[in-house]
Design a protein around this nucleic acid. Structure first.
Lengths: 230, 230
DNA sequence: GTCTATATCATGATAGAC
DNA sequence: GTCTATCATGATATAGAC
């Protein structure tokens, strides 16, 4: 306990480096040599501690997602018990799901912006086993939130809500993944802010957009063009 | 010309296979052996025809994007000349950009759904040179469309419009990338439709969502909590 | 638990015959 | 333009000393 300050656990150092490198270069684009090199541990340590590269990335996710998903559940439970049977407001639900995720980025102990960007990228990650793993990790929470939205928006067909949830996830992932990187649209600097400020302002911006989309006028399908138009 | 029907150009076969495999497994996750194997050509053919794997994927994109971006420009020019100085409707602009892309998915000669999904995924692709390449390919068109939105929505701050463009891109990419794959949210089958039908209905759905988000109420930033709205 | 050393295999690329 | 054969490298994973 004397100077255990700088000597972090090998396991943890591997997870930290893996998180950062997977975020920066993707799963297939990151080698175990890079990871152990950056972590300052031996190459064999990954296989000793985690068994394989696949297990490693799963652990990278589990370490953060367990907390995030529990927090989301806790928040939704709390909201529902406060509402006492009445339907929640869509904004409460959206904030519980997406807001909780974005606020996580401000907490370095929970992975901060690095993990958030890794999440954003990985949702469209090509690797099959990662998608399967994430789908499994997320299922319960997603189902609860979808159910809450069904009740909050009784006039919107369920299929429509599911699609819009899908769109919201996409907008959020992309916003996060690109907050410091890609910026296809944003190459001419929007604002000069450091990471924290930027996140502070991203959340309200994103929230407005998501809620606007979620509550938008229902689509007109071509085959139903009979009734009154837009 | 006698039976040149089935004997497609080697170059083209490589591009087709590469497009499909990059879509399915990502850039780093796809080997040149897989590509040439599926295309039924020799391993050395890729380097002979394209020089390198990097040049190959650039050509995969250029083959489709050149047409798409020209079409987008053509449409915007046409809309503006019809409007004769007046501002366009946001829905026209959004449809010109995103609608054109989605309708491309119905055209097998232009890559169809495969290329569209590749696009969706690659926008969050970790590989640096791909991001740089795409940003460059897109710059001119994006700038024109952003400018059109600025004029169509004079009351919305430009920074806000740029962000919302960003969000729209994300929602679209994700919707496309997941149309047949991931489906984190959608694992319990929404509807049973084949690819074409699904795209038919995806477009109006997505368009409603995007326009709802684009025209949403402006965000309230914490530090400006004193005054009403921006 | 940590290291070195190495096994085994797949990768991108190229040289050179045809 | 297409093939075979091969190079050089880097990948994941493991065996075994310490």
């Amino acid at each position: 306990m004397v100077e255990a300050v700088r000597l972090i656990d090998t396991r943890e150092r591997i997870l930290d480096s893996a998180e950062r490198l997977f975020m920066a270069h993707g799963y297939d684009g990151t080698s175990m040599r890079q990871i152990t090199g950056e972590a300052g541990v031996n190459l064999a340590a990954v296989n000793y501690h985690f068994g394989s590269k696949e297990s490693l990335i799963q652990e990278v996710f589990r370490r953060r997602l367990d907390w995030l998903n529990e927090e989301r559940m806790r928040i939704l439970n709390e909201l529902e018990s406060e509402a006492d049977g009445k339907a929640l407001k869509p904004s409460q639900i959206v904030d519980g799901f997406f807001g909780t995720m974005l606020r996580m980025a401000g907490d370095e102990n929970r992975g901060g912006i690095t993990f958030l960007r890794l999440m954003g990228r990985t949702l469209t990650e090509p690797s099959e086993f990662i998608r399967a793993f994430l789908a499994h990790e997320y299922k319960v929470v997603l189902d609860r939130y979808k159910e809450a939205l069904f009740q909050a928006l009784p006039d919107v067909p369920k299929a429509e809500i599911v699609w819009r949830f899908h769109f919201m996830l996409g907008a959020t992932s992309y916003a996060i993944a690109g907050t410091d990187a890609l910026r296809l649209v944003t190459d001419w600097q929007i604002e000069k802010e450091d990471s924290v400020d930027r996140l502070d302002r991203l959340l309200p911006r994103l929230m407005s957009f998501l809620l606007g989309g979620l509550r938008a006028q229902l689509p007109q399908f071509p085959e139903e063009a009979a009734s009154d138009g837009e």
